[in-house]
Design a protein around this nucleic acid. Structure first.
Lengths: 217, 217
DNA sequence: GCAAATTAATGATTTATTCAAG
DNA sequence: CTTGAATAAATCATTAATTTGC
């Protein structure tokens, strides 16, 4: 399988060892930026060449133009790290519980702990937890917005009214607490790691961060 | 200051131990997936108690429901000893070079390497690199947009016009390559770490991720 | 009953906005 | 004012439900 697809890929910088200007000239069909005239002051001794280049340039991109038939047949195989997180009932239950409990943007520690716990019910990573909260929050919000718009339809008692039954606040006032938690400081943790070996155990709470090419496919 | 503020705060979930079963009742409004393979039905032994709870009732405010919950409630006080990254000239030079080289959204490996390299010119973390590219990209874009708008304003006077000469593509078509790089897979890496001690060495390429409560407040 | 085709959810990324440090 | 940092909104992409034709 020759992977001749490695066209752009961070654009040459990681590939070209010696040349740095023309190397990526034709790599991309579009946007052939020429920075030649730009005289960026040489960053002294910054040898880009020493950067290791992502040898696996695979990126399936271009998604096989010819093959679309294999819909279900593919050995779903599910090699580690290929598919997206598919939460189990228990995991979702816990997450929703936490959400209802008021959690909106868990911090590092919390994510770590949640991940660790949820890991007992299925494979999961910190980013999944992180994303889940972001998505859930956003979607609850838009759901609510949509419904409020729908309610606007019947101006009957639309206004400020709504003496606010305590019941509703759970779904309607959710926003509040969010603003409370805002502007926190996010800290990042990064560690090189091969996604393959990610299936070790809960002990290892190292998840991957940053984009890393799939390299599988 | 009694920390009576911890009203919601992850809201008790980090405190209450036993209850947890009924919570997951309404798991999903739609599409209730039933994972047959999942034998566990009840969240069984999810002992939240083992979660450490954020002792610091962090979150500023407390006041909760009052006024303008404008988007970002601020009081995120300055983190203790946490100043923001202040890039050196060399660092910026390299980053800009990479940017001009076509890099827009470096992946994990790339960020790691860049960080490592830039670390030689001053303290830096992976997230700084990540953010730098995001911000630079966004700001170049809006700068360009502004300028194009400005040109539209007085098409007659100032601007040298130059109706789309190939030269402009450098600034105008920038977007293209981005689309090429799109839809990558991002991987996350997380490692518990105290931000205080972050000032160790360049050796340590561990950056923090995820929100971590200030805990100093 | 069953898969292929379609649709609905939702996980994962990117972009736009915002806040505040310097 | 510039720009690092953070979050929310918009978007893409993949999986599960659901429908449909046999």
């Amino acid at each position: 399988m020759g992977n001749m697809k490695m066209h752009q890929l961070a654009c040459g910088f990681w590939e070209q060892e010696p040349l740095l200007s023309l190397g990526c000239k034709r790599l991309r069909p579009l946007a052939p930026k020429l920075h030649s005239n730009s005289t960026y002051t040489t960053v002294s001794s910054f040898d880009l060449k020493s950067f290791i280049r992502p040898d696996s340039g695979p990126r399936k991109l271009g998604n096989g133009p010819s093959e679309d038939n294999n819909r279900h047949s593919p050995p779903v195989e599910t090699h580690p790290g290929g598919t997206r997180w598919n939460p189990t009932q228990e995991q979702i239950g816990i997450l929703e519980m936490l959400y209802r409990g008021g959690m909106r943007t868990p911090n590092a520690q919390q994510i770590e702990q949640i991940t660790e716990k949820l890991g007992k019910y299925g494979k999961i990573e910190g980013k999944n937890v992180f994303y889940w909260f972001q998505n859930h929050k956003a979607r609850e919000r838009q759901k609510q917005k949509r419904s409020s718009l729908g309610l606007t339809h019947c101006p009957r008692s639309s206004a400020p009214i709504t003496p606010i039954t305590l019941d509703t606040r759970e779904e309607t006032m959710e926003r509040e607490e969010d603003s409370l938690c805002k502007r926190k400081c996010r800290s990042w943790s990064f560690e090189e790691k091969d996604s393959r070996s990610s299936s070790k155990e809960d002990e290892n709470r190292t998840l991957e961060l940053f984009p890393l090419h799939p390299e599988s496919r």
